[in-house]
Structure formats: C-alpha cells, structure tokens
C-alpha cells in the first residue's frame, strides 16, 4: 500500500503509522458527558467501505487524514488534519 503524505508525497506503507478513525480529531469539550467521551474513545462506525482515518508519516512527523476503503484498500485522498477539519 502507498499513501501520499501531504508534505513529502507518495510513500510506501512502511513509513506510516495508523491511529484510527479520524473522529479522533473531534475531541469532546472538557465538560462533555461521559457518554460523549466513551463514544470518542471506543465506539467506531468501522465501515466495510470508505472511511476517514488518521495516519502519521513517521519520517517527517506529519499527521494526515486518509480517505480509504477498508474493503478494497484503495486510498482515495489524503490531506492534512487542518484541511480535513475545514
């Protein structure tokens, strides 16, 4: 698998680390209900298909959001977290 780091360009999978669903960018407010934190930390849509997820490009230290298909492994788009949350 190859992913495109928004800063470095296309690179082999071995340069990247996966974190999980891009919902990790949507951290609840500090005073949010425990249920909101539970969903943020644990509950996942986990689709068999297109999804948005967080990856880390280890050599350059960039985080990015990848739109990827979990059924086919096709990577449709990658972007910086800032672009993703715009």
């Amino acid at each position: 698998m190859r992913l495109t780091c928004p800063h470095c360009g296309e690179r082999d999978l071995r340069e990247f680390a996966y974190k999980g669903d891009a919902l990790a960018l949507s951290r609840p407010e500090a005073n949010a209900e425990l249920q909101a934190w539970h969903e943020y930390l644990h509950i996942r849509d986990n689709p068999a298909g297109p999804t948005r997820e967080l990856w880390y490009h280890t050599p350059c230290g960039s985080w990015m959001v990848a739109e990827r298909d979990t059924a086919t492994h096709a990577v449709h788009r990658t972007m910086t977290p800032a672009e993703a949350t715009k």
């Binding site: 990790a24 985080w63 977290p81």
Partner: peptide, 20 residues
Amino acid sequence: VMAHLEFVAQGLRPDLDVKL
C-alpha cells in the same frame, strides 16, 4: 510521545503556534 505530541499539535490544536 513524540507522535502523540505531534498529534495534539497538528490534530487537536492546530490553532496553537508550537513547533516540536
């Protein structure tokens, strides 16, 4: 820890001007 800090900086608080 480095990856974690970068995540916080880039993903959670991109508004903060901080370099690691």
